[in-house]
Structure formats: C-alpha cells, structure tokens
Write a protein that binds this DNA or RNA. Structure first.
Lengths: 219, 219
DNA sequence: CCCCGCTGTCACCAATCGGTGAGTATCTGG
DNA sequence: CCAGATACTCACCGATTGGTGACAGCGGGG
C-alpha cells in the first residue's frame, strides 16, 4: 500500500571506526521501548509490527523477542509506561480547585482533557486502536489507559461530590466520549460531523460547545 | 499477527458437476461489492485487502481490478452505496415532528442516531476507520458518510430552526461525536471511561445521560 | 588465562501481501 | 460453424511479514 519505506540511515562512518554499538542491555531495552512508542504515535497501529519497531530501534528483532517476549510483551510495557501519564498531567494549581462547584470542576476537567489528548499523539493512537480492534494486546493497553484516566480524574476531583439526581458517572462518560472522538476526528480528518477542527478558532468553538453541554447539566 | 486464516470451503462437489459458476458480470460485481461490505463490517479494516475480498467473493482478485479498478475503486463503490443509508433510516413518522421544539427534535435525533449506529456494523467500522487513518480511501468513504449523515439530519430536522444564542452546529457536532465514540467503544471493548456498555440497561443509562446533556442545552 | 554467558547479528523459513500477464472457457453475432 | 468478444482462472512476481536457529564478539568470574 504505502511503499517507499525510508532507508534507515545508520550506515557506519565511512572512514572512522564503524560507530560500534555499546553492549548495554538497559539502553537497548529503552531504545526499543522508545522506538515502539514513537512508531505507534507517529505511524499508528496499522504498520505497528516487530520488523518496524526493530528497524526504528536500529537493532535486530530477535532482541525484542528476548527482552520483551515479542510484540505482546512490548505492548504491555507501553501500557505500564502509561501509568506515568498521570504525573505529567496534574497541574500544580490542582489545590486551587477545592472551592469550586462540581460544574466548575467538570468544565475545567473537560477542557484539560481535551487539550491533554490533543497534544498527546501516542494517547490518541491508543484510543483509536481501542475502538478499532479487540485483541488481547489492545485490551491490555486499554485497561492501562483506562486506569490512568480514572486515576487522573480522581486526583483532580479531590473530595468534591457530584450533585444528586444525575448519574454523574454516565454523564461524564458521555462527555469524555465526546472529547475523545472530537480529538480523534480532528487529528485524523480535520473535522467532525460537519464542524471543522483545524484552526485554534475551530477548537475554541468546540470547547465552547462542550462547556455549554457540561454547564447545561451541572449548572 | 492474527494467523489461522480460515480455509475457504468452496471446494467443488466431489462427485457431481463442480457447481459451475454462471457467467454473469453483474452478479459477480454485486458479489464482490457484497463481499467487500461484509468483510469490512465483520472483520474491520485491518484485514481488508484485495486477496481477502476476492477470497470471500469466491472469485479471482483480477476481477476486482477489472470491474472496480482495484481496492480504491471498490471502496469508492462502497461509499456510493452509503448514499442509500439515508433512505432506510428515515422513520415514517418523521412528519409527526413538525410541532416539536428544537430540544425535542435533537433529543430524538440523538437517540435515533445512537440506535442506528449501534445496529449498523459496517457504518461503525467506517467511523472507526475514519479516526484511525487518513488515506485517500478513507477520505472518500468519510466524505460519503458525512454527506449521508448531513442529508439524514437535514431530512429529519425539516424546517425547524435552532434557538438563537447557541452555536447549534457545534453543539450538535459534539453530541454526534459523543454518540459515535460511545457506540465504537461499546462495540469494541464494551465500555467507555469506566461506564459499561454491554447490556441494554447499560445503554439506557448512556441514552439517559445523553438526553440530559441535550436537554441541558436546548431545554 | 580460558571458558562461559550475555549481547547482538545474520540468514533463512513459510506465509501472505498487492499486482500483472497470459491463458482458458463460454457466449454471441455474422 | 466459426471468429471474436467477454467472463473468468491460473501461475507467477517481488516485497514484506512474523518467527527461529545458528553464530560472532565481548566481558567477567573461576
């Protein structure tokens, strides 16, 4: 389909010593993991395979089998890595939210999640993967992502209780669904249901609509 | 990745005449198109290729090149077929909606779209494809689906005007995004953001939350 | 010092992929 | 009845895939 695979350019220096690889298992493992994450983020799950990862990592695929037990283990390692996502995404002013109403909080969280997803290609690719396949690999990744997201929401929510009379869990899930799909559609095709999602002005419109929906429920 | 391709079982009848295929180009073309749609709906876009379609259609892949000009043309034909989607999805009681408020209408449309998508595996796969890739193939399909959806919404809306003061287009796009992601996530993994999406009771909860969001904006 | 284990490389496998050229079978009009 | 168009099949191509077994080079502990 898409041909023209770029020739890897790790040819040894013509004259000097051939850039001997240091024998460092840890570094190699990290290189493989980084290659896998980068490949997934940049190319998507379509061309995500042993050969591609090894090519990008600049090592033999055999090492992936040895160190991670194959692609499955590698994907699992990516999932484990996703746990660190939370730490990077908790703004320092989280303490300042204690006095907000639940509506304020959810509006804020919605916009934060929107931006976070929009600026995280790896996470986007994983979400897209989740809704496209249902293999064991994807399930593991999905679980890790789900946990990270839940933890993040929990940390951000603090001790604020949702209002009575509404199924906040369901409403929030629907809001999150909207956010995820908007980001995916925007990144993939630049639009969603007729609404353009390219310029930052487009995204402001989307964010406004999102706010309106959240405010409509939580006041 | 996923191996164990099922052996096609179209071996000729052992004793009798070998189930001679009638030479009927029209029928073959239809068989190919049906095979493509069925394959896409059941297996997803991952293993969607010339060989797989030809295998399922029970003919040689050469015919796909001849009749459709390759996979691209075949995908385009699927897109053209999507235009018929609208006709099947307009309930006969559409006339009864003229007197509704915009909020009533959008709530209704949201639930209708939710059910329609939920019961249409092909459309689901296409939506998933749209957010996963950005090839020419997908763009064509996406455009066709977008048109069909817009046409459907237009037909359903009739002459009802949206309320002033809200960016109805943006709000509706967000609602549609939520619907699409809910359906995709439910079909793929049975849950979304912690909300289970398996039983019909689960879906009722989701629908209720959706209604609440729509009502919150449009009253 | 030498040997063994660890790290990394290479060659090869069967299977499948998209794509093509050439051939066979059937039907039809003269 | 024959010729040519049409419908269809088959065999093959190079490339790429996931996966494995054998081997080379270096380093540290006996």
């Amino acid at each position: 389909m898409l041909n023209e695979a770029v020739e890897t350019e790790i040819l040894p220096e013509a004259g000097a010593e051939p850039e001997r690889r240091v024998r460092d298992r840890g570094a190699t493992e990290r290189a493989i993991l980084a290659a896998a994450k980068g490949l997934l983020a940049e190319e998507g799950f379509q061309n995500f395979g042993i050969n591609a990862v090894a090519r990008r990592a600049g090592c033999d695929k055999q090492l992936i089998y040895r160190y991670y037990g194959g692609l499955d283990g590698l994907v699992e390692a990516i999932g484990a890595d996703l746990g660190t996502w939370v730490k990077d995404r908790i703004p320092e002013d989280a303490g300042g939210m204690f006095m907000l109403t639940y509506g304020d909080l959810m509006e804020r969280l919605a916009l934060l999640l929107l931006d976070a997803l929009r600026s995280d290609p790896l996470m986007r690719r994983i979400v897209a993967w989740e809704v496209s396949e249902n293999t064991e690999q994807v399930r593991r990744l999905s679980e890790a992502r789900s946990k990270a997201l839940a933890l993040w929401l929990d940390r951000m929510r603090g001790s604020l209780a949702p209002p009575k009379g509404v199924d906040a869990a369901a409403v929030n899930a629907v809001v999150i669904a909207a956010i995820q799909h908007l980001v995916l559609a925007g990144a993939a095709g630049g639009q969603c249901a007729g609404m353009s999602l390219k310029t930052s002005k487009d995204w402001e419109k989307a964010a406004t609509a999102l706010k309106r929906l959240v405010r409509g429920v939580y006041g």
